[in-house]
Design a protein around this nucleic acid. Structure first.
Lengths: 186, 186
DNA sequence: CATTTTGTTAAATTATTTCTGAACGTTTTT
DNA sequence: AAAAACGTTCAGAAATAATTTAACAAAATG
């Protein structure tokens, strides 16, 4: 029954593949990109575009795009394979690194984007506040907005620091990876 | 020039609205849902569906769905307004709470989903490993998968703890919200 | 240097999602 | 109790996004 056990393994992997793809979907990763990563996660050797194509039963351009998406969030790496002149790719197996890369880069980008928008907005609001001809209502509204944005700015700054401490691994000092389940340190 | 200052304020808010909507999009929040939240963020009073409809220039069903999405991640709340029998909604202005609710619930869901998939998969893999008739190759593969899944499980457990410490606010002990920029504590 | 291999881009098709007006069921008002 | 107001569901239309085939450009081979 060699066939049976192979099937069982495939089914086991399949369950996790579905789950990983579904959860990645929660964060805006498109389904096939998610599925590709999950499949790669179970491979012990680097995959070429042709491998992926065959594995997922999809076209090569689709795989090209999907793998690029994964590279962009640094959870898949291009590796060099002697002998083959095809590009080869390897998935990140350490989910802690996965987490760091994925959220680290997203938060960093989020913070940067919003900080510049906040700067722009605050400049305009200052103009309103400094303008003699601004109406009372406008002044009031501008003031409220400005203060709110200052709070928002603090959050963005915090996000940046969070991002740093994620990428540096510092966060694992605060929240260590426990060795085994069932034990509690305190 | 009262008109001018109003416009300037609108432009200021608009810049941040765009930025917020764009970053929410990064995490799988649909554009109009993101835009709705961002607009609500700048309102000092609760909004009704009709307010939203007018504010975004969209249909009421769209607003109904969008606001439901926002409620689901706990960044918008239904509030009671005396006098009106329409439902009123208020956006979360504290982005730290926003962060907690948003990622807290997502991570929790992610962990739960994957943990059950891992359990299922491990059961199947055990069957393969215990089966006398399993081929050598199958055994090897099952073993590797099993060990990998154990690592993955540790990550999911960690995610659960992270989620807890986020929702409890404990994380702010580790990474405090700094009062002002430019100062460093150490 | 011509030929083959490989990865990406472009255009067209297909599938999916989003949006709206209409219909519906509930609740409130009169 | 009838009428009006309100929020949601539904079906179809419109807009987006994903996928594929075909064409292309770059690089390696012989």
């Amino acid at each position: 029954m060699k066939k049976k056990t192979e099937e069982l393994i495939e089914e086991a992997e399949g369950a996790v593949v579905n789950s990983i793809a579904e959860t990645m979907d929660l964060y805006g990763i498109t389904p096939t990109t998610g599925r590709l990563f999950a499949r790669m996660y179970f491979k012990q050797k680097p995959m070429t575009l042709d491998d992926m194509k065959e594995d997922l039963g999809m076209s090569k351009p689709s795989m090209s795009i999907a793998v690029r998406n994964l590279q962009e969030v640094s959870i898949v790496q291009k590796v060099w394979q002697r002998g083959s002149r095809k590009d080869s790719f390897l998935a990140e197996k350490d989910f802690f690194k996965y987490f760091s890369h994925f959220f680290g880069s997203k938060w960093e980008r989020e913070a940067k984007l919003n900080l510049t928008a906040i700067e722009d907005a605050e400049k305009m609001l200052k103009k309103v506040l400094d303008d003699e001809e601004s109406g009372e209502e406008a002044i009031k509204r501008a003031k409220i907005d400005y203060e709110q944005l200052e709070d928002y700015r603090k959050y963005c700054k915090w996000l940046e620091r969070l991002s740093d401490s994620i990428e540096s691994g510092e966060i694992f000092d605060f929240l260590p990876v426990e060795e085994e389940t069932g034990y509690k340190k305190n």
